[in-house]
């Protein structure tokens, strides 16, 4: 510590009487102005363009659109339920000490991840070409075309395909749980399956929920490809209407708005699910959250 010669006055260490100037954030104002201008341009373009907004409003709650919406939601729920069920079963099989079960799971995941979804849908829908009748010989049988309706074909196609993806998600979730948890469960006398159900899966959910939530949202939109096998979901019904009245863009807008609405509701639901399965981690989770905000 040697005294500085050039400094005439001692530095002022008391800053209590000074005030802090608020940062101006010019960049934010500039960006906001630019984006607002672009938005206004787009809105004006669509307002001047040849879109009959009246038709959008008119068909927004048309019975065909609403029934399509119900079918879309019903298919999303059923296909995801099937997909998650299969996903959990095959994930557990893939991690089983039994080599036969393990091999079966690997084969399932390999096949259904390895072929295009639309091809699988067409295969299910045309199953009657291979098996005209399905059932138990001499006991009961049914004509395949009666059993494999567009709904059933779509459900099998989407659900079984989804299962292959969900199996991998569930497997990574199970792997994320510390092996000490399984050992502690064994030590209090739990069997492998009880430990999985009571201890491992609830903790794996924290890792599984975000990607599965993502997949539910994908599924809402994926149901639209079932229009190729005549399942009357919302997009197919919108198409049927515009084939008749030629308001193509208007009806596509109607469908788009409904998809957005459903996805928005699902995103909110996902948020609450994640919070529920994050319990026990909440202290650290909220600490991270505030840390990220500051």
């Amino acid at each position: 510590m040697q005294p500085t010669v050039s400094q005439s006055a001692a530095p002022d260490y008391d800053i209590g009487k000074l005030s802090i100037v608020k940062p101006r954030h010019y960049g934010r104002w500039l960006a906001a102005a630019a984006i607002l201008a672009i938005l206004l341009f787009i809105v004006k373009a669509f307002a001047d363009g040849q879109i009959a907004w009246r038709v959008v409003g008119q068909f927004f709650t048309a019975p065909a659109i609403l029934s399509g919406l119900v079918n879309t939601i019903a298919m999303t729920v059923c296909a995801m339920a099937l997909g998650i069920t299969l996903g959990v079963i095959f994930a557990v099989m893939a991690m089983s000490p039994n080599p036969v079960l393990r091999g079966t799971a690997v084969l399932y995941i390999w096949f259904f991840r390895g072929t295009p979804l639309i091809l699988q849908l067409l295969l299910w829908f045309n199953l009657a070409l291979v098996f005209p009748r399905i059932g138990i010989p001499d006991v009961f049988s049914i004509r395949t075309v009666e059993l494999i309706t567009p709904f059933v074909a779509t459900l099998l196609g989407l659900g079984i395909n989804q299962g292959a993806y969900t199996a991998e998600v569930v497997r990574s979730g199970i792997l994320s749980v510390d092996s000490g948890q399984t050992e502690a469960a064994s030590a209090i006398g739990m069997t492998r399956l009880t430990a999985l159900r009571r201890i491992v899966m609830p903790q794996a959910m924290r890792v599984i929920i975000p990607p599965v939530g993502n997949e539910v949202i994908s599924m809402v939109k994926l149901t639209s490809i079932a229009s190729v096998i005549q399942y009357s979901e919302i997009l197919r019904n919108a198409q049927t209407i515009y084939y008749a009245n030629n308001y193509v863009i208007e009806l596509l807008f109607v469908a788009a708005i409904w998809y957005l609405a459903v996805v928005t509701v699902l995103s909110i639901g996902q948020h609450f699910l994640e919070r529920h399965f994050g319990r026990g981690q909440r202290k650290t989770a909220s600490a991270q959250k505030t840390g990220a905000l500051t």
């Binding site: 510390d178 948890q181 006398g189 069997t191 026990g280």
Partner: peptide, 23 residues
């Protein structure tokens, strides 16, 4: 597996890293 689980009821185990069920 089930019989081994039953036999484990005779012993209680305390681990170095506690291994409490986090959830």
């Amino acid at each position: 597996d089930a019989e081994v689980a039953r036999q484990r009821l005779a012993t209680g185990m305390v681990f170095q890293r506690f291994n409490l069920f986090q959830h």
